[in-house]
Design a protein around this nucleic acid. Structure first.
Lengths: 144, 144
DNA sequence: TTCCTTGCAAACGATTTGCATTGGA
DNA sequence: TCCAATGCAAATCGTTTGCAAGGAA
């Protein structure tokens, strides 16, 4: 069992939530990490081993436990990825052409500058404290 | 007729697209609004005057004409707002509690700082030139 | 007339849920 | 054991589409 799975297992146990086979499979597939995946994509990744309805339930439980974060993209599709406490803080580049989402890790200097800007915005608007998540839209390398 | 409607009318005419009653109503409602609206919300805003199917068709035509920009939010809902050439460049604060989206206009200094950060990210990732749109998640005033 | 647009209803795809069964701590 | 999790099928929700009727150029 790799580190991520152990961390997830501990988190779930702390909360009295079982780390069942289906849930392990979901976390495993996301940990193998080809980026955010939708329920349908995971269904395929797992060779149909987990039926869609169970997949959706697993995703809901894991999201609720703070293990996964949802990402709402084009065409009403929701993709999930491991939460930041498992993968590190990062941002998203969403391709407006193909809908692909790339994870981006920012330099400490860039992150500091960004935080200043975000704080300025949220304070002015009376928004509560939150870990910011930044989605930038553009055209990815593959679609240019 | 206000400025926005005149601008939209001109744009549509240039492209040989009719500015019909339903389309006028959609643009009007979005112009009156303070943020992105979903088809269902617009349906309500307009008192059911435009049936949902026609609404969706109007939204598609207007998006295609570059008058509206789609915004993919929580729970597979797509919200639309007037494009930036009509409203000015701005950013989004999405409430993770209630899903509401507020528009935010940033100070020139803030915008400059932000652009630098965004450019740094996109260049490093080989992302093509695009007007960035920033979505920041948080908890809005109403939900705190 | 000749297209384009509309409205209704049916179709669709993604997600959710009811219920009987299975499984894990 | 005993409640939570599963799997199937049916239901739901947002959205799209076929088709016949209405409207503008």
């Amino acid at each position: 069992m790799n580190t991520v799975e152990r961390q997830v297992g501990q988190r779930l146990t702390e909360r009295g939530i079982r780390f069942t086979r289906a849930r392990r499979r979901v976390v495993g597939a996301l940990g193998r990490g080809d980026g955010p995946r939708s329920a349908a994509e995971l269904h395929g990744d797992l060779g149909g081993a987990v039926p869609l309805s169970s997949l959706y339930r697993s995703l809901a439980v894991l999201e609720d436990a703070g293990v996964l974060s949802p990402h709402h993209g084009t065409r009403g599709l929701t993709r999930y990825e491991l939460a930041e406490w498992l993968t590190g803080h990062h941002h998203h580049l969403t391709c407006v052409e193909c809908g692909a989402v790339d994870d981006v890790h920012l330099s400490p200097a860039g992150e500091r500058a960004l935080e200043k800007v975000v704080d300025g915005i949220t304070e002015a608007a009376g928004f509560g404290p939150t870990a910011h998540t930044l989605d930038i839209e553009g055209v990815c390398v593959r679609c240019r």
